[in-house]
């Protein structure tokens, strides 16, 4: 057996060696790009197909009409209003509850086996199938609390669904506030609550809002849990308007109104035999996808704005 020797250092050998290693480097660039385009292309093809199939339905009439038995007259008014109101309820409940829970876990809770179990379970909750949340909501909100098959039930159901997302995102954001900043505030005599409200929360707003929007853009596409609680697929009226012309000018009766949402409307149209409804479904799908992408864009913009003003 020959004695092992170090590679020679002469020009030829070094160049040959570098060249062969760079080939492998380039190889990864190709593989990586292929993987990237596989994702992007499938999204683009999907979006393009939806736009093409629904191209003749992108009219004001489509956005401002109720569903109809005749495909050309059917629209998504009830669906997008329903989706918006349900999202409003979801945001107004999931965000405060999620943020408070996350702040408690991060800033207040002692680190022991009990909080350890809670942490693991919060992460696991993010993986629970959404239909299970639907079943929970059917038993709890619809039957036990008697909230009916209403906007508030749907909003609370989706809030439960995205709560883990909000909690995890908030904890990440809160954790990114440097320890030195906390120590500076504590060093001046601040209490835990003062440190939280004056420093930790303001400096992590960007991350919290991003988490909120990512959670909402998941919730807006959910269908299964809402079908479980009994959302209607055919609604030819709008919920009671939240603003009225008599004092006190705000009304909350819309919370208990029946509703439909975009994905359910789509599902309803897709399952009809008449091909004209297929283009309705495609157009609604494109609009829903557009709404989701818009929300993600807002999240990215918010994060960018906050990163710019705060860099540690």
């Amino acid at each position: 057996m020959a004695t092992p020797t170090l590679p020679s250092n002469d020009l030829q050998t070094v160049r040959r060696d570098v060249a062969s290693r760079k080939v492998r480097d380039q190889l990864f660039v190709v593989v990586g790009l292929l993987a990237l385009f596989a994702c992007l292309l499938s999204l683009l093809v999907l979006f393009g197909k939806l736009v093409m199939d629904g191209s003749d339905r992108f009219t004001w009439e489509f956005v401002s009409s109720f569903p109809s038995r005749r495909a050309v007259h059917a629209g998504i008014l009830a669906a997008w209003v329903g989706s918006s109101l349900v999202m409003l309820v979801t945001a107004c409940t999931a965000v405060p509850v999620g943020v408070m829970a996350a702040i408690y876990l991060e800033e207040y809770a002692p680190k022991n086996w009990f909080t350890g179990i809670i942490e693991i379970n919060v992460t696991n909750l993010a993986g629970v199938p959404s239909i299970v949340y639907g079943l929970l909501a059917l038993g709890l909100f619809v039957y036990k609390f008697d909230l009916g098959q209403s906007i508030v039930t749907a909003g609370l159901t989706l809030a439960l669904l995205i709560l883990p997302v909000v909690i995890v995102a908030t904890r990440e954001a809160v954790r990114s506030v440097p320890r030195a900043i906390r120590e500076a505030a504590y060093g001046l005599g601040a209490t835990r609550w003062e440190v939280t409200k004056d420093h930790v929360l303001p400096y992590s707003t960007g991350g919290i809002l991003t988490g909120m929007i990512l959670g909402l853009s998941r919730a807006i596409g959910e269908t299964a849990p809402l079908i479980t609680i009994g959302a209607l697929a055919f609604i030819a009226f709008l919920p009671t308007p939240p603003i009225t012309d008599v004092a006190p000018y705000v009304s909350f009766t819309w919370l208990t109104d029946p509703f439909t949402v975009m994905p359910i409307q789509m599902f309803n149209w897709v399952s009809r035999p008449d091909p004209a409804f297929q283009s309705n479904a495609a157009a609604a799908g494109a609009i829903l996808l557009g709404m989701t992408l818009l929300m993600n864009a807002v999240a990215i913009y918010i994060r960018f704005r906050f990163r710019k003003s705060i860099n540690w």
Partner: peptide, 19 residues
């Protein structure tokens, strides 16, 4: 400890101004 920190100030190793 809050009472103590009200009367005894501290300057840290790395400058840590609030943003």
């Amino acid at each position: 400890p809050i009472e103590v920190r009200m009367r005894i100030g501290m300057v840290f190793q790395k400058p840590n101004p609030f943003p």
